[in-house]
Each structure stands twice: as C-alpha cells, then as structure tokens.
Amino acid sequence: MARMKFLCDADRCIECNACVTACKNEHEVPWGINRRRVVTINDGKPGERSISMACMHCTDAPCAAVCPVDCFYTTADGVVLHSKDLCIGCGYCFYACPFGAPQYPRLGNFGSRGKMDKCTYCAGGPEADNTPAEYAKYGSNRLAEGKLPICAEMCSTKALLAGDGEIIAQIYAERVTTRGYGSGAWGWRTAYKDMVSG
C-alpha cells in the first residue's frame, strides 16, 4: 500500500488559494472551518514564501496520541481520519497538532466546541464509502473512487503535490536538482520525521 502524503513546493506556490476554494466546495465545508489554508511567511520581504497547509496525515500522529476518546484511526494508505460520532470536542488535538489542522464549529464556550473537523485527504470517514451519511459528516470520498485529493489536483502551478510519499518526494527532488535550489518540503520533518524536508 502507498503511504499518502502532501508536499507543498514553496517555490511554486503563488498564493492563489485555488486549493482552499476547491476543498471548501468539494466537501461543502461550513463557514469558519478551514480544512486547508495558505500561509505567507516573510510577507513583503526577500524570501517571501507561500505554503498551502492542511492536515499532513502525520506519522505517529500527535492528534491521535492525545485524543481522550481515542477516536482517530490511520487507514492502510497512511491517512489519518477520525470519527465525529466519537469526538467530544475537547480541543486537545488542536493543541497537539503541529499544523493547526483540527477545526471546530464553535469557539470553546464552556468547552463545547462541537465535533472536530479536519482535512480527510478526500478519504471520508468511518461510514461506508460515499454514502450520504459519510458525505454529511466528512465530505466526499475521492480516494475510494481512485482519485487523489481535489486540492492538489486543482493546483495550477503543481506546487501542491499529493500521492504516494515516495513518488512525490522524487518529483520534488528532481525539481530541486533541475532548478538548483529549494530544500524545503515544509513540515515534513515534523510530520513524517523525514528529511526530504525543511
């Protein structure tokens, strides 16, 4: 089985936010929930860089380790998913997640944030694949249809790569060699404890 990962090539990302829009539309993500976002670092300075970030589907995922009700599971493809039926909205996964991925419908008023929502790698949730119940809670399940996440598919500059970790790392490494710079697969070290990274 492939080990699915995301990789954002910061030298290509132009902060067009197409990935964000595509994600929102594909899964009908409600207002206030941002499964994917584009962060610009060093804004307006030399070395400015934009990076599209969502759940990285970490190896030894921090969110899963701290969830008091143990509602996360990792699929055979290495995708980190969770059950909204089991989540109690405690917010712990947001404290542990290095990438700010978990989102909540409400701000913690008396700790009642509602069920956590995050990027599913377009792979749905524990319900049967592509059922209305699954769609309502987690959005569409493209992976079950043999498709990759919509964000990466939509990326006009192909900055955002999704797919088998080894293959996207190769693509990226080839780009780096060809253009002579870019050693930053942002977040890879923290997410995958892996050094294709920066």
Binding site: N17, N34, R37, V38, V39, T40, I41, N42, D43, I51, M53, P62, A65, V66, Y95, A96, C97, P98, F99, G100, W186, G187, T190
Partner: peptide, 23 residues
C-alpha cells in the same frame, strides 16, 4: 508564523513543532 487571509490569527501559524513535545 506568517500571514493568512483568514480572519483567525491562529491560522497564521504554519508549523508549531512543539506540538510533538506536547504529544
């Protein structure tokens, strides 16, 4: 930490590596 167009200042944090320490 960078800049983000979402009106949620927390979203501007791209990576907080100490999440691993909290874990």
């Amino acid at each position: 930490v960078g800049r983000v167009s979402i009106p949620d200042p927390k979203a501007a944090t791209l990576i907080q590596p100490h999440g691993r320490e909290f874990q």
